[in-house]
Amino acid sequence: MTTDQTPTYVESGKEFDRDMNYIPDRITADGRDGWPVEPGRYRLVAAKACPWANRAIIVRGLLGLEDVISLGMPGPTHDARSWTFDLDEGGKDPVLGIERLQEAYFARYPDYPRGITVPAMVDVPTGAVVTNDFPWITHDLYFEWRDHHKEGAPNLWPDDVREEMDDVMKRIFTEVNNGVYRCGFAGSQEAYDSAYDRLWTAMDWLEERLTDRRFLMGDAITEADVRLFTTLARFDAVYHGHFKCNRNKLTEMPALWGYARDVFQTPGFGETIDFDQIKAHYYVVHTDVNPSGIVPKGPDLSVWHTAHGREKL
């Protein structure tokens, strides 16, 4: 890990408030934002360590867009400046030729004032970032790149449950995806207690919802499952201890744990999970939460491959 600066995440006395002001441009079939769908033109930069980026990796694979949109993968640790391509030969992305994702942001916005985040879609010809608006990235991979989906690609946004799915995804984002961060980056006991209670209210809701249905919206995987899965995959390895989300482990919730293994064992999901990178990212980068930088050896991750028995649902 480079240490030009130490990134800080916990603001003393305050609750964690995620900055959701992302670059709003979208890559669309009609090119209305100036970025038309064009095979080979864009590179998805997405670190395996990051749950938000993990979503984009999964959706790209499920839809069969690997030969249409290339994938750049930064390493799991970074400093306050940027994600870096330290896993690539010479420490440079082999397509973009850059050492830091920050360079793609500065190629478009020389004074870009916000965090350098993944996932990011980068315009290969110019080397400039197009967007880092992660909810729209996966949405548009499905809706705007349809002409390039593989045959038999899953319907991640089914019309018949769309309205309910929007509500489910909103609650999952605010209470679970972001809820674990509110716990981990709480700057006061009061902020932590509130975040903890909100998280576990939502986890209990999910446990109940998944008791009698195989996936969040029924009998098929949707975008909602992609969004929940990347948090659940990190729960026992990181969030339970590192973020103090420790009422119980995921493995102690029968429906949620069975569901998580079911999704993990579905082609396109488990192979995107790198637990070593995940643990390295959280335990090394978050020095204000884990100042020692020690990465735990556990938990036993072979349990993800055990039978889940949810086919009967």
Results as ranks from 00 to 15, higher is better:
194 S>F: 11
227 R>F: 01
183 C>K: 02
201 T>V: 12
229 F>L: 05
128 A>N: 09
233 A>Y: 01
211 T>V: 07
167 D>E: 15
135 P>V: 14
225 D>K: 13
165 M>T: 10
125 P>H: 00
120 A>H: 08
161 V>C: 12
140 D>L: 06
189 Q>K: 15
223 E>I: 11
206 L>G: 02
153 A>T: 11
183 C>N: 01
236 D>N: 01
132 N>E: 06
122 V>T: 07
173 F>A: 10
233 A>V: 12
170 K>I: 08
189 Q>G: 13
197 D>V: 13
167 D>C: 01
195 A>P: 06
212 D>P: 00
132 N>M: 10
236 D>C: 04
226 V>L: 04
207 E>S: 03
163 E>H: 12
207 E>T: 12
139 H>M: 12
140 D>V: 03
168 V>S: 06
178 N>W: 12
154 P>K: 03
137 I>A: 14
179 G>H: 02
144 E>M: 14
159 D>T: 14
231 T>A: 06
213 R>T: 15
172 I>W: 04
174 T>S: 15
171 R>V: 08
164 E>H: 07
155 N>H: 11
157 W>H: 11
194 S>M: 13
124 V>Y: 10
127 G>P: 08
225 D>M: 12
237 A>Q: 03
237 A>I: 02
147 D>V: 00
202 A>K: 05
127 G>Q: 12
156 L>Y: 07
207 E>F: 04
229 F>S: 04
190 E>V: 06
237 A>M: 05
136 W>S: 14
212 D>W: 00
220 A>M: 11
202 A>V: 02
195 A>D: 01
189 Q>P: 13
180 V>A: 04
210 L>I: 02
130 V>D: 10
191 A>H: 05
143 F>C: 07
154 P>F: 09
169 M>A: 02
140 D>P: 01
140 D>I: 11
210 L>M: 02
166 D>E: 11
231 T>S: 06
235 F>H: 14
185 F>S: 03
138 T>Q: 11
